[in-house]
Amino acid sequence: MNLEKVIFGFFIILAFTLNFGFFLGEIDDPAHHNVYELFAAIVVNVIATALKLGDRTQTGALLLASSLVAVLQLIAAAAVWAYASHVHAGGMDAMFMASIVSLAGGAMVANLISVLLLIADTVALRR
């Protein structure tokens, strides 16, 4: 068993599951979405992206692209959260929360693509 591939797969799958955990719940209810879970999803996605930097294959390029999309959308979600919490006079409301969860949903789709590419690449290696 290759420890490097285990760690690589672990972070790709963890990025997806953390993002999914944040995404679940009523789209406009801030009580259903934890800011620390969003932060954890960002950190793990950045780590997963860094692990994808060395691969020079076509699959590696697609994995990196999907990971960059996920990180970009999660950072945008965090920026919207920061704006709503600290700058906007009305504070966090349903509109801002829906935007944050929608951005996290887009990141979740990108993470799902990464997981599916990882599975497809693994199945192709077995044949």
Rank of each mutant, 00 (worst) to 15 (best):
G54N: 13
S66E: 10
F39V: 12
A94S: 15
L53T: 12
I47F: 11
S67F: 02
H32C: 14
T49L: 13
T59W: 04
L38T: 02
H86V: 11
A50R: 03
A78M: 13
F96A: 11
Q58W: 04
V44Q: 01
Y83M: 13
S102G: 10
S99V: 05
W81N: 06
F96K: 04
F96Q: 04
L64S: 05
S66V: 00
V69W: 02
A76S: 12
N45W: 01
A31Y: 13
M92I: 15
F96P: 01
A76R: 04
D55V: 07
S99H: 09
H33W: 03
H88M: 11
L103F: 00
R56G: 08
P30Y: 02
A78I: 11
I100F: 02
Y36R: 09
A48P: 05
K52I: 12
M92A: 05
A70M: 07
D93P: 03
A98L: 11
A94D: 15
V80C: 10
A41P: 03
M95D: 15
V43Q: 07
L64W: 04
V35K: 05
L103A: 00
S67V: 01
R56L: 05
A41L: 02
V71H: 01
L53Y: 10
L103H: 00
A77W: 00
L62C: 03
A78H: 11
A98T: 14
L53W: 11
N45D: 13
S99Q: 09
Q58S: 12
A89P: 01
D93L: 11
S67T: 05
A61L: 08
Q58Y: 06
A84Y: 06
A77I: 01
G90N: 09
V43E: 10
A61R: 07
L64M: 14
Y36G: 13
A40M: 12
V43Y: 09
V69E: 05
T57G: 08
W81T: 07
S67Q: 05
Q58R: 14
H32T: 15
L68E: 02
D29Q: 14
I42R: 00
A78W: 04
V43H: 03
A76I: 07
A76T: 13
V71A: 04
A61Q: 06
I42W: 00
A79E: 15
A70V: 03
A77Q: 02
M95C: 13
D29G: 07
H88K: 15
A84G: 08
A76G: 05
S67G: 14
A61K: 10
R56V: 06
A65H: 09
L103R: 00
E37H: 10
H33T: 07
V101L: 11
V69N: 03
V101A: 07
V46I: 13
V46P: 01
L72V: 11
Y83Q: 10
L51S: 06
I100T: 01
S66H: 08
L103E: 00
